[in-house]
Design a protein around this nucleic acid. Structure first.
Length: 270
DNA sequence: ACTGGCACCTGGGCGC
DNA sequence: TGCGCCCAGGTGCCAG
């Protein structure tokens, strides 16, 4: 489900309901996620009021005085605000109960997500080596061009590398490369500065638009407010292999890069 | 230092 | 209807 726009949509959806409140009770029905759920999660009722819900890359950070709860949604995770009376479904693994009518419920069929803990003043390993946020001024074409020197991996794998820039997953990498007219299998080190400037601009533009639309709903993504994302209608190439290019009508092709489907237009992308 | 490949899971859709 | 196969929005870690 989630790329950066979906995580940001989730953050904005849940924050108004829970910031300023304390966790009263924790229910962990399934502790086997990508890593075992951090033991500290059970201590949240002693952590005082939630101060903020932040985001770094695709990680959500629930900020308490004693530290931060790090939540990742993996491939299929979601967070919803539900009432305590809401029936528990098969993959509803964790509840953080803030109030009877305000339960933060984590659902994740594939269990690739994570609940980790970062004590105040320390940096968890998963957050340690991350590149810049794509919507920050630290990220631009010059940054991409500089890091790409000497790299032979495909440009698509390159921009999906969290050490290069965070938050660019398969959907938006595919879309941004189409918008910038760059073939996804081109070697990262063989792309000009000018084209990287265009690519960085497209990454920013597409992520910004996707966030404004509430993310991309493929199967059943819903934001914290339960509404689906509407960006799907704007996808130009992702999931459209074999169909005509919206721009030139050539048949869109697909190849695999880093075990991920990569759809592109053989005429528009060079 | 890079790179590609694997792992962790469940569920949906397809062909037979 | 059922079975086996392939696919899926992520990413840390491994061997080469």
């Amino acid at each position: 489900m989630p790329e950066l726009p979906e995580v940001e949509t989730t953050r904005r959806g849940i924050a108004p309901h829970i910031v300023g409140s304390a966790v009263r009770r924790v229910e962990v029905r399934q502790c086997r996620l990508r890593w075992p759920v951090a033991d500290e999660v059970q201590l949240l009722p002693q952590a005082g009021a939630l101060r903020a819900v932040e985001r770094r890359a695709k990680y959500l950070l629930l900020d308490f005085a004693s530290g931060q709860l790090i939540i990742h949604l993996g491939m299929s995770g979601s967070l919803r605000i539900v009432s305590r009376a809401a029936p528990v479904a098969k993959h509803d693994h964790i509840d953080l109960v803030f109030a009877a009518d305000c339960v933060l419920r984590y659902t994740d069929p594939r269990r690739f997500g994570a609940f980790l803990w970062q004590p105040a003043g320390s940096v968890h390993k998963v957050l340690g080596a991350l590149g810049p946020e794509p919507l920050s001024s630290a990220f631009d074409g010059e940054h991409l061009y500089r890091l790409a020197r000497g790299r032979r991996i495909s440009v698509k794998s390159f921009i999906m590398d969290n050490a290069v820039v965070v938050g660019v997953g398969n959907i938006y990498a595919t879309e941004a490369l189409f918008a910038a007219g760059i073939r996804p299998d081109r070697a990262a080190g063989r792309i000009s500065r000018a084209r990287y400037i265009a690519l960085a601009e497209q990454i920013k533009a597409i992520l910004t638009r996707a966030i404004a639309q509430g993310g991309t709903t493929l199967r059943d993504f819903v934001g914290g407010d339960g509404r689906p994302g509407y960006f799907r209608q704007q996808l130009q190439v992702y999931g459209r292999a074999g169909q005509p290019c919206e721009s030139c009508s050539a048949t869109l092709k697909s190849l695999r890069l880093g075990q991920r489907a990569s759809v592109f237009c053989p005429r528009c992308q060079r």
